[in-house]
Design a protein around this nucleic acid. Structure first.
Lengths: 166, 166
DNA sequence: TGTAATTTTCATTTTTTTTTGAAATAGTTA
DNA sequence: TAACTATTTCAAAAAAAAATGAAAATTACA
């Protein structure tokens, strides 16, 4: 297969995957482009490769930097800013978990605490409080497990320790 | 807090959370409504509670059933179909993992295999192949870890086994 | 089988999300 | 500081996703 075709297909596919992970398509495509690039790229190069506007390129590069998935690189003698991707997949996953935990788990926890006591003792109220309690217990476990994951080595989750508990 | 206010806030919040998980807002709201309901509900009741159209209610209930997050219940003496939610959060998470694995990991793997060999040995081609290889290794580990999770008891991931490897 | 209730489908409309592009701002060099 | 290059912002446009509602299909019961 031609390199160009491979690149296009990979960028496309990574973009689709990103959409399911709270990373919009262009954002994920930029990440893909930087992943497969041996050199860091400028916003201008990103715009040209992906055929998007400067504004779009700039906004999504910033978002990627916020997520910790892309780093800014200052090339001596160059005026433009250059960008390179985090290429370690375990790091990528950890960064995504950190963001999503912040954006999803924390707001949910706030609501669960707010609504955990309701008036009355009808079956509906009882069931409601029970479900809220269950979800609270579950999300607090998820919270600490996710913390453990984001602080661990990839082998902790993937690796040989499996055999230890078999 | 009034029960109704608590319900509304929870349904709203679960809907938002769902949007980040490949479950559209209404789909997640229906799941939330069924979660906190002591009795199974008909499509008509769901439509009324959430103020949505029948078509929308029907389509999203079907989707929830596909995901395994909602079950159909046949009430003797009733003509309508009734629906109840999967209320065990660990089951909910496992069902979501199963769906997302199918919808995301499998297509990615296919593309990675397709593009893993490209012409030439330029730095760009070398880097491309290296990145594809890395992602392949990573996703195959993720794949088996996710299988393990979906077959395990919730304690496996959350629970006391942590202490075993400390 | 005929009738009414229920469920499903899907073209159209509405809503939400993303992108553009042009203007404003910031930064660099001579 | 002037002239130019690069970056950021954001209102408006475009694209994508979701919801409606009416018609079609299915199902249950007399």
């Amino acid at each position: 297969m031609e390199l160009q075709e491979g690149k296009d297909r990979f960028i496309q596919s990574w973009g689709t995957l990103g959409s399911s992970w709270g990373i919009n398509r262009t954002m994920a495509q930029i990440h893909a482009l930087l992943l497969i690039s041996p050199e860091s790229l400028s916003a201008e190069q990103i715009r040209d490769e992906l055929k998007i506007s400067m504004g779009n390129a700039n906004m999504n590069v910033r978002a990627l930097i916020d997520w910790g998935l892309v780093y800014k690189e200052l090339k001596p003698g160059h005026r433009k800013e250059y960008f390179k991707a985090e290429k370690d997949m375990w790091e990528v996953v950890k960064k995504v978990i950190i963001q999503r935990k912040k954006k999803e788990l924390e707001p949910l926890t706030r609501v669960l605490n707010d609504v955990s006591n309701v008036d009355g003792d009808s079956p509906a109220a009882e069931e409601f409080e029970k479900v809220i309690r269950d979800i609270k217990v579950f999300s607090s476990k998820a919270d600490s497990t996710l913390d453990r994951i984001t602080n661990a080595d990839s082998n902790w989750l993937f690796g040989s320790f499996i055999s230890m508990i078999k």
